[in-house]
Simulated scan of single mutants.
Amino acid sequence: MRDPRPGLGWSRRRAQTRTRYERWMASQAWRARRRAWLAAYVTRTGVQPRCAVCDRPWTLTDGELHHRSYRHLGAETDTDLVQLCVGCHQLLHRILEGHPGWLRQAGRPHATDVIIARLRAANACPRPEEQP
């Protein structure tokens, strides 16, 4: 969830959502949810996950789970989450947050899916040495 644009503030609702998000992401429950996601993924597919963009191995310590939707924050379904390496996750957010039309026109889940598909097709993930 991005910071407000310079010169603009957040609505009270947005500020409350941000606080709830930050608390959830720092919680033991979120870490447990990540472990549960990984176990379910391996059970469902029979393989360890790889970054949805660049296909690098994904692990609990070296990977991030992107929220396709915040609708179920705190009770995410497996389809609310997508595995990304750090570089691809940062790139995805730069695109989503740099072009608000993505979210307005497509909605977060669809925008996420389209951006991931385009990044994958373009082989656009920064390599570890290129990551900010």
Rank of each mutant, 00 (worst) to 15 (best):
M1P: 02
M1Q: 10
R2H: 12
D3M: 08
R5S: 12
P6N: 03
P6H: 07
G7N: 06
G7P: 05
L8G: 03
W10Q: 12
R12Q: 14
R12F: 08
R13M: 04
A15N: 04
R18S: 04
T19H: 12
T19G: 04
E22A: 14
W24A: 03
M25L: 12
A26M: 06
A26D: 15
Q28M: 06
Q28C: 06
W30M: 08
A32V: 04
A32H: 11
R35H: 14
A36R: 15
A36K: 13
W37S: 05
W37Q: 09
A39T: 14
A39K: 14
V42F: 01
V42S: 08
R44G: 01
R44L: 10
T45A: 11
T45S: 13
G46R: 05
G46Q: 04
P49I: 06
P49K: 10
R50I: 11
C51N: 12
W58C: 01
T59D: 00
T61Q: 15
T61L: 13
D62F: 07
D62R: 14
E64M: 10
L65V: 02
H66G: 01
R68N: 04
S69L: 05
Y70H: 15
R71Q: 13
L73I: 11
G74C: 08
G74S: 11
G74M: 12
A75R: 13
E76Q: 02
E76D: 15
D78F: 04
D78K: 07
T79L: 08
T79P: 00
L81K: 00
L81N: 02
V82F: 04
Q83W: 00
L84F: 07
L84H: 02
V86M: 01
V86W: 08
G87H: 03
G87E: 07
Q90E: 09
Q90I: 12
L92D: 02
L92V: 05
H93I: 03
H93T: 02
R94T: 14
R94W: 11
I95Y: 05
I95Q: 14
L96Y: 09
G98F: 07
H99L: 03
H99A: 07
P100C: 07
G101H: 13
G101R: 15
G101D: 14
G101F: 09
G101T: 07
L103Q: 13
R104N: 10
Q105R: 11
R108Y: 01
D113N: 13
V114N: 00
V114W: 10
V114P: 00
I115Q: 07
I116E: 00
I116S: 01
I116Y: 03
R118V: 09
A122W: 12
A124F: 07
A124Y: 06
C125T: 08
C125G: 13
P126H: 04
P126D: 05
P128Q: 06
E129R: 13
E130V: 00
E130G: 00
P132L: 09
